[in-house]
Amino acid sequence: MSLVEIENVHKSYGDIEVLRGVSLRIEEGEIVAIIGRSGSGKSTLLRCINGLEPIQSGTIRFDGQQVNSADTDLRKLRQKVGIVFQSFNLFPHLNAERNITLGLTVVKKMPPDEARTIARKVMTQVGLEDKLDAYPDMLSGGQQQRVAIARSLAMSPKLMLFDEITSALDPELIGEVLTVLAGLAEAGMTMMLVTHEMGFARNVAHRLVFMHEGEIWESGAARAVLDDPQTPELKSFLGSVLI
């Protein structure tokens, strides 16, 4: 059994079909990078995996549990799937520590002391142990994104979803966030990441998925796919991002 099993998923917004029969399996410990043009359905695919978006047909199973089923407790499932967004989405009225402990104390009913210990641990992991008291508006974009990663990590997820998490950052801040990701990769975290950082995808991802118009157009070992694209669509996409 794979950790994530996506089978023939169709998803529409109104009349517009955004995912058109997507199938994909992700093994535990695997790192999958998803690339593709704007509007190709990359974010939608990630958001379907943790049930933020309903699907019209097909199945998505996470850790053996069907995501798109009425008797699935999405709240339970989401504790095991972390997601980090392009725009950080930290809670602006809470400091970094409380951003991180909220899920632990409210959802996991953990005692505050224990939650704070975890907050310190994950903030250290992202290199921000001295920013526990800082409010989001006091942090740089790169720091906010690292707190957002820490907030997800604190829940001890089995899978992390990253949706273009460096796209809103100034170029000089991208490195610090990618460093955190590389650390996670080394620690064996299962990850799916939508990214435009081709160099990072090549070096860190095990597998690369190219999406085009709601379908998985090409996929395979990251280096092989990038070095030897098979379809004209991927060739032209790579041409447009690498130049």
Partner: peptide, 23 residues
């Protein structure tokens, strides 16, 4: 996005309101 971020942590609707949205 605040609803989505809090939902993704596993908060229920009332918990989202109480801890994230209403404040």
């Amino acid at each position: 996005a605040q609803w989505e971020a809090s939902a993704s942590l596993g908060l229920s609707t009332l918990q989202q309101l109480r801890y994230v949205i209403i404040p």
